[in-house]
Amino acid sequence: MTTRLRGVLAPVLTPFDAKLAPDVGRLIAHCRWLIDNHAGLALFGTNSEAASISVAERKSLTEALLEAGIPAARMMPGTGACALPDAVELSRHASQLGVAGLLVLPPFFFKGVSDDGVFAYYAEIIEQVGPGCAPIYLYHIPQFTQVPITLGLIERLRKRYPTVIAGAKDSSGDWANTQAMLDHFAADGFDVFPASESLLSKALPLGAAGCISATVNMNPAGIHRLFEGWRGDQAGELQASADAVRQVFQGGAMIPAMKHAVATYATDAPWRTVRPPLVPLDAALRESLDARLRAIDFSMPGYPRA
Rank of each mutant, 00 (worst) to 15 (best):
G80F: 00
G80H: 04
G80M: 07
G80C: 12
A81T: 12
C82V: 14
C82K: 08
P85T: 08
P85M: 08
P85S: 03
A87N: 08
V88S: 00
E89W: 04
E89Y: 03
L90P: 09
R92Q: 09
H93Y: 15
H93N: 06
A94W: 03
A94K: 07
Q96R: 15
L97P: 07
L97Y: 10
L97K: 15
G98H: 12
V99R: 14
G101V: 08
G101W: 02
G101I: 01
L102R: 11
L102D: 15
L103I: 01
L103F: 09
L105D: 12
L105G: 00
P106Y: 06
P106R: 01
P107S: 07
P107I: 06
P107V: 01
F109D: 10
F109G: 04
F109K: 06
F110V: 11
F110I: 08
K111F: 14
K111P: 01
G112C: 12
G112H: 14
G112R: 02
G112M: 09
G112A: 08
V113H: 04
V113L: 02
V113W: 03
S114P: 12
S114G: 12
D115R: 15
D116Y: 08
G117K: 10
G117H: 13
V118F: 09
F119G: 01
F119K: 10
F119L: 05
F119P: 01
F119N: 02
A120S: 04
A120M: 05
A120Q: 11
Y122N: 07
Y122V: 04
A123Y: 03
A123M: 04
E124G: 10
E124A: 15
E124K: 14
I126K: 00
I126A: 11
E127S: 06
Q128A: 11
V129Q: 06
V129A: 02
G130T: 03
G130Y: 13
G130A: 07
P131Y: 09
P131H: 08
G132N: 14
G132W: 03
G132K: 05
G132T: 10
G132V: 10
G132H: 13
C133P: 00
C133W: 13
A134Q: 09
P135G: 02
I136D: 06
I136S: 11
Y137S: 10
Y137C: 05
Y137K: 07
Y137E: 11
L138N: 00
Y139A: 00
Y139F: 13
Q143V: 13
Q143Y: 14
Q146V: 07
Q146I: 03
V147A: 11
V147I: 12
P148I: 09
P148F: 10
P148D: 02
T150Y: 13
T150L: 11
T150A: 04
L151R: 13
L151D: 15
L151T: 15
L151Y: 03
L153T: 00
I154W: 10
I154Q: 00
I154S: 10
I154Y: 05
L157Y: 05
L157S: 08
R158G: 07
K159H: 09
K159D: 15
Y161E: 03
Y161D: 07
T163F: 00
V164I: 12
V164P: 00
V164N: 03
A166E: 15
A166R: 06
A166G: 03
G167C: 04
A168T: 10
K169I: 01
S171Y: 14
S172Y: 02
